[in-house]
């Protein structure tokens, strides 16, 4: 890419130079504004409690209190909540690939009679805003006796029209000759899906994993309704109940816990940037 909106000639004009300088400064201020609260969460987690409440706030800690992290780790049963969150993430991912993946494969590649009908039956749910049926959804789970169980997350994970659409579009792009060849060689459709479609679809599964991970990691409200005993809380729900709403918790410990909760998603983001940029552009098509 040689040029953008501006050409090298534009930048030689003094007026444009000043505007460009202001623009660069604006971006620099934006970057600082973006990073400051994140860095402060980390440094506040390393300060002593009185130091956090000094005015004006200091950036770096004067003394580094690493013990805040071990105190934070032991303040609530983080490993239990972490385990619950990972459980929900893995189960949801499995259900997505199994239930939605098979359906997407069938509609994209097998095309049985009336599959268009099923396709619209699934897609129609995209137009119904999730908040509008949140309460009957809760009532439904209660009537099915699924409250306070992981199944209340795992089973509905198979009812996501958006993820279905992403996989269906991806399968559409795989050359059908591969499946024809497999069929001629006597492979069943299930073998085709597991041995051909799944390995070829690693990029879309990676994107879906990131979506499902971030939902499992970030969602605090819905799990707080569905799970009502402490041993079943997800990480975000537990943080909301015991850290954000805590009255007598030291700010330094609070920030150390918040920092620990923030680190995994940041690492996932930095490690999987390529997939995330793709997944962001996919959200534009989301309903």
């Amino acid at each position: 890419m040689e040029r953008g909106i501006l050409s090298p000639a534009d930048l030689r004009k003094p007026g444009n130079k000043i505007v460009y300088g202001i623009m660069v400064l604006g971006i620099a201020i934006m970057a600082v504004t973006m990073l400051y609260p994140i860095l402060m969460t980390m440094f506040n987690g390393l300060k002593s409690n009185p130091e956090i409440n000094t005015f004006p706030p200091k950036f770096f800690p004067t003394t580094w209190h690493w013990e805040n992290f071990s105190k934070g780790w032991n303040y609530i049963a983080l490993p239990v909540f972490l385990k619950n969150t990972v459980f929900i993430f893995l189960g949801n991912l499995f259900m997505t690939i199994l239930v939605l993946g098979l359906a997407a494969f069938s509609i994209s590649r097998i095309r049985v009679p009336y599959s268009r009908l099923v396709y619209f039956f699934i897609l129609l749910t995209l137009f119904i805003p999730a908040t509008s049926y949140m309460i009957p959804n809760f009532v439904n789970l209660k009537q099915l006796g699924l409250l306070n169980s992981y199944w209340a997350f795992w089973l509905p994970a198979g009812a996501n029209a958006y993820y279905f659409l992403l996989m269906k579009n991806f399968f559409d792009g795989i050359h059908p000759e591969i499946f024809e060849a497999a069929r001629i060689d006597g492979a069943s459709e299930l073998t085709s899906y597991l041995k051909i479609a799944v390995p070829l679809s690693v990029p879309i599964f990676a994107t879906l994993s990131i979506f499902i991970f971030s939902t499992a990691w970030n969602d605090w409200f819905w799990p707080s309704l569905v799970m009502h005993t402490e041993d079943k809380y997800t990480l975000a729900t537990a943080i909301y109940k015991y850290v954000i709403n805590a009255r007598s918790l030291d700010s330094s410990i609070k920030f150390s816990i918040l920092f620990m909760v923030m680190v995994p998603p940041i690492f996932v983001f930095l490690g999987f940037q390529k997939f995330i940029v793709r997944s962001v552009s996919l959200t534009a098509v989301k309903g």
């Binding site: 239930v99 494969f105 099923v118 089973l155 009812a159």
Partner: peptide
């Protein structure tokens, strides 16, 4: 392949 998705979409 479609049955599980249809059942889950109906119920949930």
């Amino acid at each position: 392949f479609l049955v599980p998705a249809i059942v889950i979409f109906i119920i949930f």
